[in-house]
Nucleic acid binder design. Structure first.
Lengths: 226, 226
DNA sequence: TACCGTAACATTGTCGACAAAATATGCCGG
DNA sequence: CCGGCATATTTTGTCGACAATGTTACGGTA
C-alpha cells in the first residue's frame, strides 16, 4: 500500500448528508414531492449516487418512495410525534442507566462542563431558543454515546433524533422552559456521577415524559400545528 | 389513469429482500467480504439496483461498507448481542403496554389462537427448534404491530429482529425451553386481554430479560461462540 | 356538460461503459 | 532471505443513455 490515505467520503455520502440536513432544517418540507433531477441540479451530482442516498434515507424513514411515482418527505402526524417521545422515554432511560454504569469520569466531567456552558448561555439569554435546542441535543447525544451500547446509540442518533429535530427546527422553541430542562439535566448528570443507574433511568424517563406532555399540551392548544 | 395497477416491487427491492434473507439465514456469514459483481451474478441483476440495496442494508446496520474497499457482513460480538436484548427489553416492554391499550379484541383472539397452534406443535414435538423460533418471532411480531406505534414497530421489525434472527438461525435453538417460553407468552397475552398495560409491560420485560440471561449463560459456558 | 378512453409527456428504473481508488504482484536493494 | 517501493490488476464509484411506468392533457361520446 503506497499511500495509506483512505478516502472516507463518497458522493453518495455527501448527498446523504446534504439531503438529511435539508430535511431536518426544513428546506425540504414534509409532504414535498421532490424530483430526482431537481435534486441533482440542487446538489450538483448525478442520479446514481443520489438514488443511493435516497435509498438510505428511505430506509431510515425520512423519505417515502412510491415506485415510478417519486419520493416525498415523510409527514409525521401529531400523534406519531407523540409516539416518538414514548419511544425516546424508554430508550433514553436505558441509555442513562447504562451511561451511569459505563461513562468514564472524564466524560462525566465534560458533561457537567457542557451544562455549565449551557447555563451561562441561558443566563445571558442570547439566542435562547437556538442554543437551547443545540444544548439539549448535545446533552442527549453524549448520554447516548456514553451508554457504550453501539446499537442503542445508533438507533437514537441515526433514527429518532433526526425525526425529532426535524420538528424542533420548525418549532424553534424546544421545551419553552430552558431553566427547568436544565435543572432536570443536572439531576440526571448528578445521578450518573454517583453511578446510580436506576435513578438516572428514572429521572431521564421523567424528563422526556415532561417534554412529551408539553408537546401534547401545545398540540391541544393549537400552538403546534402539524 | 387507464389501468390502476401499481407496480410495487422494483429490482432494488428484490435485491434488498434477497440480501437480507441471505444474511439472516447465514448464507452470507458475518465478516464475509462480498464483492458486488459476485452478488450480481448470484442474484442475476446489475450493479445499479444492487448498490441501492447495499446502501439500505448498510443504513440498517447489517452491512458495513468501506469506500472503494468493499462491503462486509456485520459481525456482532457476544457483548453486542447481549446489548441487543437490553434494547429489546425496554422497547418490547413499551410495545406490550401499548398493545394492551390498543389491540382490537379480534387481534387478541388471533394472538391466543397463535399460541394454541404453537402449543400443539410443541406437544407433537415436530421440528421443535425451527417452529419454536418461528412461533416466537410471530408472537413478538404481532405485539409490535399491535402497539399501533408506527415507528416502534418499524424499529423492532426492521432493525432489531433481523439482527437477532441472524443469530437465531445460527443457534437453531432459540431459548432451549419452549414450554417455559410459551408459558411466559400466555401470561403476557392474558395481561393484554385484561387491558392491563402495566402488567403486560412488566411480564414482557421479564420474558426478554430471561432470554438475555439464558444467552449470557450459554456464552459463559462456551456453548455459544461468536 | 360530464365522463371515459386514448395518446403524449415527464419521471423513474435499469443498464452498460468509463474513471478513480485500493489491493495484490513483482522487482530491487539491503 | 526479508523489507520496501513501483507497477499491474481488481474492485468500487460515477456517469450518461435507454427502457418501463405513472401522470397529465386531450378528444370523443353519452
Amino acid at each position: 500500500m503506497p499511500g495509506t490515505t483512505f478516502q472516507t467520503y463518497t458522493r453518495a455520502d455527501e448527498a446523504f448528508d446534504c439531503l438529511q440536513t435539508a430535511i431536518v432544517k426544513g428546506d425540504l418540507a414534509p409532504g414535498d414531492k421532490i424530483g430526482e433531477l431537481d435534486l441533482c441540479a440542487r446538489f450538483e451530482l448525478t442520479r446514481g449516487p443520489l438514488r443511493e442516498a435516497l435509498g438510505r434515507l428511505e430506509s431510515r424513514g425520512l423519505l417515502v418512495r412510491r415506485p415510478h411515482a417519486g419520493v416525498t418527505v415523510v409527514a409525521v402526524s401529531a400523534s406519531e410525534l407523540v409516539e416518538l417521545y414514548r419511544i425516546r422515554e424508554v430508550m433514553e432511560g436505558l441509555a442513562a442507566r447504562q451511561a451511569a454504569e459505563r461513562m468514564t469520569d472524564q466524560e462525566i466531567a465534560d458533561l457537567q462542563a457542557t451544562l455549565d456552558a449551557h447555563e451561562a448561555m441561558i443566563d445571558e439569554s442570547c439566542g435562547q431558543a437556538y442554543y437551547q435546542a443545540e444544548g439539549d441535543y448535545d446533552f442527549h447525544h453524549r448520554i447516548a454515546t456514553g451508554s457504550r451500547n453501539t446499537k442503542l446509540a445508533q438507533m437514537l442518533l441515526g433514527d429518532l433524533y433526526y425525526m425529532v429535530r426535524m420538528y424542533r427546527y420548525r418549532l424553534s422553541t424546544s421545551t419553552g422552559r430552558p431553566q427547568r430542562a436544565l435543572g432536570e439535566h443536572r439531576g440526571i448528570v448528578e445521578a450518573i456521577a454517583q453511578r446510580d443507574g436506576e435513578l438516572a433511568e428514572f429521572l431521564m424517563k421523567r424528563h422526556i415524559n415532561a417534554a412529551r406532555k408539553n408537546i401534547e399540551r401545545k398540540i391541544q392548544e393549537g400552538v403546534l400545528i402539524i
